[in-house]
Structures are given as C-alpha cells and as structure tokens.
Design a protein around this nucleic acid. Structure first.
Length: 567
RNA sequence: CGGAGUGUGGCGCAGUCUGGUAGCGUAUCUGGUUUGGGACCAGGUGGUCAGAGGUUCGAAUCCUCUCACUCCGACCA
C-alpha cells in the first residue's frame, strides 16, 4: 500500500474527552472516529487491525473445530420473552418497534438466537457436541460509555455457543475453549491472566475471565504470589481465621457524640479501624432485616453477600428510616450487642476480641465487646472484598491485587436456555434431553484498546506484529525530488510485496519528521529509511519500533533481513 | 437517574464577567523557499458562536427552555 492511496488521518491533538491513553492514541493515529457517545467508526487503518485480530480468532476457533455462523443484529422480542430476558435484561437492551408495531431489540448477545437455531437443527445426540461461533457487532446501551472502544455501546465481539448431551462433554469443550483462548491471547502478544470469575445468577462453578493486565483496567483481579490461583476480586474468597483471643476487657458503654463513621470512632477513641466493627443492615428474604458485620477496615463484597441464605437477592441495603424504626438508632450507631435480627459476621470480624461497635443508641458505642459473652450466637461467613496480603484461598502464598481489562469470558451455561426455550435432542436411550450449553466471548474491539494500553510509549502505539496494521513502513527521504531514492524505494516496495510483506510506502510529499512521527504514532513495527546519503554506500537504515537503535543494512540483503525479523 | 462541567471553522482554545465588525494555534488549499525528527514566507477557503424563544437600537456575550457531550456516583447475565 502506498500512503498516497491510503487514508492516513493522524492528528496532533486528541479531543479532550479522551481520558485514557489507548483512546487518545486511537484517535490520534486515525484508527477510529467518534460518531456519538459510545459509537465509533473504524477508519481504514483501524479496520486493518480489527481484521488482523479477527483472523487470529478465526484460525484458532476453527482449529478447535468450532463452526462459524452469522446471526442478525436485530432480534424479535419473542425469543427474548421465551428466555424471560425481555423482562430481566433492563435498559441495556435497546428495544424498538418495526413498522408493524412489533417489538424488536438490538442483540447485546446471542444466546436466544443460537438456541433457536439449535432447537431447529439439532435433533440427535449424534450431532453433539457442536460449537458455533460468530464475529458480530453487539449493542449494549451502556449507562456510561467511556474510554473509547473500551466501553462503547456498539462493539465487535466473537461469541461462541457450544451444545452438549451432558455436563461431562460441556466440561471438555470448556477446557478446549480455555486453551483456545490462551492460544489466541498468546498470539496477540498479551500479558494476560485467566482468572476465576463470578458466574452471576446462572450459577455453576466454572467461569473464567481473561484479563489483560493494565493500570487503567476497570476490574480488580487478584492472584497468589506462590501458586496459579487467580480470581476476579468479586470472586476471591477469604478463609476462616483463628478463634478470637480470650476476652480481656469488660464491656463498657461510652459517649460518642456526633460520631457516624468508623474513621470518626477510631479518631475519637484513639484506636485502629482493625479493632472496630461496622454493622451493615440489608433486606432479608421475608421482609425482615439482616445484619452484615465487617471489620472496620474492610469492605463488603456484594456478590458474596447476596448469596447468603436469608439475604434478599439482589442485595438491597435497608432504608435508614426502617432501621431507625426497628433498631432505634441511625446507621452510624448500629452494633451487635442485643441485636435481635440475624447477624452474619465476616470471618475477619469474627476473629476479633475486645472490639468496638455501635450501641444501638445514637451517639453511643460499646468498647471491650466480645463475641458470645456480649452477643447472641452469630454465623461467621465470607463477606468482604479481599485485600492485598490476604492468604490465598488455595492455602499457598498470599494475594496480590492488580487491575485488568476483561477481554474474554468463558462459562458453562448448563441448561438455562435449553430449558426455557425447550431445546432438546434425542439421547442414546431414545428420550429427549435438554442440551447443556457453554458460552465463550471475546471483545474484539476491546482487544485493540487493551493492546495499546499495554504497548505504547511517548511517541505512540507499539503494535505487536501479529495485529499491526502494516508490518513494515518504507520512509523515503526526498521521494519526490531524488530519482535515485524514488527508484530504490519503488524497487524495495515491489520486492516486499512479492514476499507478501504487508508494507506501507510513505510516498507523501511530507518532510521526514512528519513521516517518522506518523509511523511511530501508528505503531508500525518495522521501518526502513531510504536516503541519498545511505544510497551512496548501498545501505538502507532499519529501525524496530521497539528498539532505540538504528541499523544499516545492505540494500541487496534488506528483504531477507526483514523476512528474518518477521519470522 | 443524582451531582458537577462543557458546547465558538476538522482538532485544540480565547472572547462571555462589563452587549457594539468572529479571533488565535493547528489542519486544509495556492505559490515560493526548504528537506534525516511535526519547517519558513506570502496569499486563500472554511463558523446562522449547540438549538429555540425572550430582553435590547444591537446578543457568542444577559434571561428562559431544550438538546448534545464529558467527568464523579448509582447500574453491570
């Protein structure tokens, strides 16, 4: 490709709504163009990258024997009503009516459509297992789109759905997909981790997210410093701790006027938050209240809390007015002494002795409180968000927390959709069985942003070769003046094309500085510079985007030199 | 949905308080000089100042409403 035949749409300044580096660089390099909030066009340079990513995904998916399909973006309400998600999904699902006043939506995902297909065409266990995938545009009406294509409303996703006669078969394909995802992300050149994930209301214990490690990641993930354990922070468990020490202090009520928060209490009483507890009140299953107790320095993990027996799902914090009426005090003064509602205590809080808590009277707290002696019987459970340094749940090492960008998610759906949509096959014994399903997603467009987050410097993007829009850029100095430079550049360009090198010849009438800056901003991995000075010696200058040094290469050997670099 | 903010050539911004000819940088076009790190000179093109209504002799500027976008929060099978 010659630059004069292409659209190089680089800009010096990014719009000021671009917050993170990948968004800024994607705009500046001219990969994307914003149409409206969360809606982006892919310009020629950006599309080439998408196609590279898609190619890798296709190759690896095909290798795993998955079959590609393509399903509609617009979907009729009927199938969503069948799966109950028309009601459950919420405003993220963009709904509209067609000219006949029939309900439709834009697909945020395709479980319903694929199940509908499976229902029609899968009749016998002999056709199973089967794994169908597509690379398709999705639409989710995000509350707050941000970070460019990282969290946009319209985005490209690879989604795969597998169908199985039993759980065993599902598990095998799940493992295969896990491996396939690793292959894909290895090829893309990510520093990533597969982590245990919460499988949401679907249940089942096997769900993994694939996270690219990056400071700007929206998710917190944690891993052991001494084993393979890695999990989304929502999912990471804490272990029961040792029994509390024997009580040393007597319980005593103290005045704490105006004190509402743990910080206030601790400042007033000159103690650390680790020796106080906080009591959160949530709604219970039958119109009652439930107390959740955490150590002062810990935070509630809402996913864990909502899974506790007797706690209303989804988790709902109690209204302060209701709490006042039933417990006789406001939020800041709730405590566990003489508390007449179910009390669930986090393991860490349950391990405390001689601690501080609210007195269930405004402006008063207890000090020297001990479990059992001063409280009724409690249930100890895992309630909190893990913190750095917690012991790893597998018993090996301690946890470290990093930020990650979720680029893939695989999980076992079981029979949720095949049950509600009645997708069954005839089994070996001649009876109909609802199929087990697995579901596997990769955010194609998000991958590009994630890769840039991980690979850039102050000059721009440093694309890994596997997904770079071009492998090589040829920068001729004085292409339009020096006939010798032009001849050499054209010759080299033709030679590269012959070797199927994805090469960009920058034949624009620009000064060298602009051409260097553009190629570095766009992040083309390899660069050759041709100039009269070098031509005098039969040399060409090579530079890798990753390395600071320039190398002189004989003109005759340059193509094989490049081929070697491309491996 | 709650809080905060911003809308002025493609992009980045000034002008708004204190009403009086629409401005700067960059990009773009033409001509010339340059050519190894975002050049210089000269001359152009391009804006109903987000939209609607109001006040005024006169509104980018003051008032009212609407819309869009951004940030923080809530939400996220």
């Amino acid at each position: 490709m010659k630059s004069s035949d292409f659209l190089i749409s680089t800009v010096k300044e990014a719009p000021n709504d671009a917050q993170i580096i990948s968004h800024q660089l994607m705009i500046r390099a001219g990969l994307i163009s914003k149409l409206a909030s969360g809606l982006y066009s892919y310009l020629p340079m950006g599309l080439r990258i998408i196609q590279k990513v898609e190619k890798i995904i296709r190759e690896e998916m095909n290798k795993s024997k998955a079959l590609e399909v393509l399903m509609p973006v617009a979907q009729p309400a009927e199938i969503w009503k069948e799966s109950k998600r028309w009601e459950e999904y919420g405003p993220e699902l963009l709904r509209f009516k067609d000219r006949h006043d029939r309900d439709f939506c834009l697909g945020p995902t395709h479980e319903e459509v694929i199940t509908n297909i499976a229902k029609q065409y899968l009749r016998s266990y002999k056709q199973l297992p089967i794994n169908l995938y597509q690379i398709q545009t999705k639409f989710r009406d995000e509350i707050r789109p941000r970070f460019g294509v990282m969290r946009s409303r319209e985005f490209i996703m690879k989604d795969a759905y597998s169908f199985h006669i039993d759980e065993q078969s599902l598990k095998e394909t799940y493992q295969l997909m896990h491996q396939t995802y690793c292959n894909i992300f290895d090829r893309i050149g990510f520093d990533y981790r597969p982590v245990l994930a919460d499988s949401g209301t679907i249940g089942g214990d096997s769900s993994h997210e694939f996270h690219v490690l990056a400071e700007s990641g929206e998710d917190a993930i944690c891993f052991s410093d001494d084993s393979d354990y890695a999990a989304n922070i929502e999912r990471a468990e804490t272990l029961p701790q040792q029994k509390p020490k024997t009580a040393e202090q007597a319980i005593e009520k103290v005045e704490t006027p105006g004190v509402k928060t743990i910080t206030d209490v601790c400042n007033l009483l000159k103690v650390e938050p680790t020796s106080a507890i906080k009591t959160l009140i949530v709604e219970g299953n039958d119109n009652n209240l439930v107390a959740l107790v955490l150590r002062g320095d810990h935070e509630l993990n809402e996913v864990k809390a909502s899974k506790i027996d007797g706690v209303k799902q989804p988790l709902q914090m109690a209204e302060e007015a209701v709490v006042k009426k039933q417990l006789g005090c406001s939020f800041g003064s709730i405590g566990v002494v003489n508390l007449e509602i179910p009390v669930i205590v986090d393991f860490a809080a349950a391990a405390l002795s001689d601690f501080i808590c609210g007195a269930n009277e405004d402006d008063k707290h207890f000090i020297g409180v001990n479990w059992g002696r001063d409280t009724k019987k409690i249930i100890a459970s895992d309630l909190r968000i893990v913190v750095s340094g917690d012991p790893s749940p597998d018993g090996k090492g301690s946890l470290e927390i990093k930020r990650g960008i979720e680029v893939g998610h695989i999980f076992q759906l079981g029979t949720k959709y095949s049950d509600s949509m009645n997708a069954n096959v005839i089994g070996e014994d001649g009876r109909a069985v609802n199929m087990n399903m697995g579901c596997y997603g990769i955010g194609v467009t998000r991958i590009i942003a994630a890769s840039i987050e991980q690979n850039h410097d102050d000059r721009g993007i440093i694309f890994p070769e596997a997904i770079a829009p071009f492998q090589l850029v040829i920068v001729p100095i004085n292409y339009n003046k020096s006939s010798r430079v032009k001849a050499l550049a054209d010759q080299l360009y033709m030679d590269c094309l012959e070797q199927n090198i994805e090469v960009l010849l920058d034949d624009r009438k620009e000064r060298p500085g602009i051409m260097f800056a553009d190629s570095e901003l766009i992040g083309i991995p390899h660069r050759l510079v041709i100039s009269d000075t070098h031509a005098d010696n039969g040399k060409i200058e090579y530079k890798s985007r990753k390395m600071p040094d320039k190398v002189e290469v004989d003109f005759k050997e340059v193509v094989s030199y490049i081929l070697d670099k491309l491996d």
